[in-house]
Simulated scan of single mutants.
Amino acid sequence: MRTLRIALILLLALVAMQVLGLMSVAQGPAGTWVSGIQIQNQSSSPATVTITFYWAQNSATPGAVAYTIGPVTIEGNKSVVYYLPGIADFPDNFVGSAVVSSDQPVAAILNTSKVAAGTESDPKRIGAASGVLSPATTVYAPYLRKNYSGRNSYIAVQNTSAESATVTITYRDNTGAEVAAARETATLSAYSTKIFYQNENAGLPNGFYGSAVINGTQPLAVVVNNANDGTRWDRSQFESYNGLTQSSTKLWIPKITANYSGYNTGLTIQNVGTAAATMELVSTFGNLTSPLIQPGAAWAVYLPSAFPSASGGGSATVTSSQPMVGVVTENKQ
């Protein structure tokens, strides 16, 4: 049986009046947010698929089944989309997680988007993450913010086991120092999700940008979202990425941009090894060497600042004597 875990906030709002109710549960970016799941059958044989939704940890019934889709059949090499607002009896104000199970290999993506007019003052926003095939007891989040240039992040952590899990999040700032006062610990019910909002963590200073290591006593699936306030089109960035578990001493970055029709790339590379290390960036625009990066800490490079005269697209590699994970972002501002 093939199982995917989706640990991103899933929201259903039937009418605009429910926005405040949603936001009282999830203190993320303001607005009404909805989700869709697309599942692809990767085999040539029909797949029997079930999607089970679980209430989040801070709900009245953490870990309880909120809704089930299926079993349904997905034909070989085809995909289906489930848009939650289009499911008439899906529970209102849902915040939680999902598990996709199949008797054939499948892949899934989750889109979370803001209901908006699509105007300059009310821009549409969307982020996407992948279903998690291999949960882990240690997961890395290189790119986190608290009130940093108007940006905040939050981490959705799902317990993927049938037993309760203790989760600990350890933060490091941009210098590599652990922010001990910000450490968070929580107990998650079986299959439940808890969302950790960096702007609500009193131990993190305003202007924080850094990284985290998420540890669990059971295997975890993790998704991180970064967003600004979305009050106008040039403040409408909404970035999702999966928590990272696979590392290497060399990372390949096939697409980067700098000052290219308003698009720019940022790189955040986290040292997940056991010793401090320097990192070497070799790119189309030039080369850089990082300062000494402590274990668990991350090196952030914003290409227009690192290479002010660069313009266009290219590629890059990053090497280090210690294993690394990385996140690449591209925005238009």
Rank of each mutant, 00 (worst) to 15 (best):
R5I: 03
I9V: 06
L11E: 13
A13W: 11
M17T: 14
L22F: 09
S24K: 11
P29A: 07
V34F: 14
S44W: 04
S45Q: 14
I51Q: 05
T52W: 00
Y54P: 05
T61C: 09
T68F: 01
E75C: 05
V80F: 10
L84Y: 15
A88Y: 10
F90I: 10
P91G: 09
D92K: 11
A98E: 09
D103L: 01
P105F: 01
P105R: 00
A117E: 13
S121A: 13
I126H: 01
A129T: 15
S134G: 02
T137Y: 13
P142C: 07
Y143M: 14
Y148D: 15
G150V: 08
N152Q: 06
S153H: 05
Y154N: 11
A156S: 13
A156H: 00
E163M: 11
T168D: 06
N174I: 08
T175M: 01
G176E: 01
E178S: 14
V179M: 05
A180E: 09
A186S: 12
T187H: 03
T187Q: 11
Y191G: 00
L204S: 05
N206I: 08
G210S: 07
A212R: 00
N225D: 01
A227Q: 02
G230T: 08
G230F: 08
W233D: 01
W233C: 02
D234L: 04
R235Y: 11
G243N: 04
T245M: 08
S247E: 07
S247C: 05
T249G: 03
T249I: 11
L251R: 04
W252T: 10
P254R: 00
I256L: 00
T257N: 00
T257R: 06
Y260N: 14
G262I: 10
L267D: 09
T268W: 00
I269V: 14
A275E: 14
F285N: 03
P291M: 04
I293G: 09
Q294A: 15
A298G: 14
V301S: 12
S309L: 15
G314D: 06
A316I: 04
T319E: 09
M324Q: 06
E330R: 08
N331E: 13
